[in-house]
Design a protein around this nucleic acid. Structure first.
Lengths: 171, 171
DNA sequence: GCAAAAATGTTATGATATAACATTCAATTC
DNA sequence: GAATTGAATGTTATATCATAACATTTTTGC
């Protein structure tokens, strides 16, 4: 399994969340999925995915670039954006439209379009499949005669954790 | 009511949609609402709102700037972005996050957060209040213990009209 | 090995958005 | 009607986000 060398954001490790496990699971699934699909999870793409998974916050492309440079001398904006394009195509990350940022996808490969709950306080993004919402949406599309290609359902607010412990910064 | 001097996009006038009426209604509501609230719908803000309402497509800020310049010599990016900020604050327009663009709001002032159906073919944006979707969403928030500040629910695809008449370009 | 395709390197620039400070305008008070 | 104040706008500069275009390298299939 892939190494996890430089966790430069100290992810809040709670009893219910071992982040190292969480990351290695996500990377493992990604690796498996790419083999299965006959697409290349190259070194650069793998590194970018790993960097995104350093936290559950949405990360900006240029922030990724800064963090990638020490590992990949030649890294330029295009380097990062190409890797991001690939990862999005493969459903391994979400683009958070309302933040121009990116976050790892826990539901990789299947039912990729999810409700994203974005905390303004800790900046973490929670994915929810929200089946009732999706069902109500599809009724709405039918009614409107609208043929859907893609959805972005993004909600900003304060997550449960931050409501309880407003002092514990996400950073 | 306000004049509508330069419709430089020939809005498709169908039997069911008289766009001049549509625009003047929107502007009238905006004017009324601003008086009611004691905020100033200044000349610049009014012009920007009018420009946005020239069509039901989402418009880019710099496109607005180009169209504003002939009417407002001194117009600069800040001019437009300030007007947009005001109009968004007052709930008179939507920012379409997934397009970095702006569209007039038909539901000005109340229940501002709507489902946006964005057609990839004609680029028009349809707002829907989608009460069932909103209800399902609020259940989801409750379940997650998430306190909502704002929502962006944006769906891309092909509208009913463009499915029927794929040749009639929206441009 | 060789050709073709995919990925990456590299340079440049386009597109989106805001910060910071100056000036003007409009309403209120004296 | 001059002074004061706050809102709006003017102005310059720059930050931030993203892609185009072409060169080079790497990988894959034959």
């Amino acid at each position: 399994m892939s190494t996890y060398p430089k966790p430069n954001q100290n992810y809040q490790q709670s009893s219910e969340h071992n982040h190292n496990e969480c990351v290695s699971e996500a990377l493992g699934i990604a690796e498996h999925l790419c083999v299965e699909r006959g697409v290349q999870l190259t070194a650069i793409r793998h590194k970018v995915l790993e960097l995104i998974w350093e936290s559950h916050k949405a990360v900006k492309a240029y922030e990724l670039l800064d963090r990638l440079k020490p590992l990949q001398q030649a890294a330029k904006p295009a380097t990062v954006y190409r890797a991001l394009d690939f990862l999005i195509e493969q459903g391994l990350i979400h683009r958070v439209e309302s933040l121009n940022a990116f976050v790892g996808c826990r539901c990789s490969g299947h039912q990729h379009e999810q409700l994203l709950l974005i905390c303004k306080h800790c900046n973490e993004v929670e994915e929810r499949s929200a089946p009732d919402v999706m069902l109500a949406l599809s009724h709405e599309f039918k009614q409107a005669g609208f043929m859907v290609h893609s959805k972005a359902i993004e909600v900003h607010g304060i997550c449960a954790k931050c409501q309880k412990f407003p002092d514990v910064s996400g950073e």
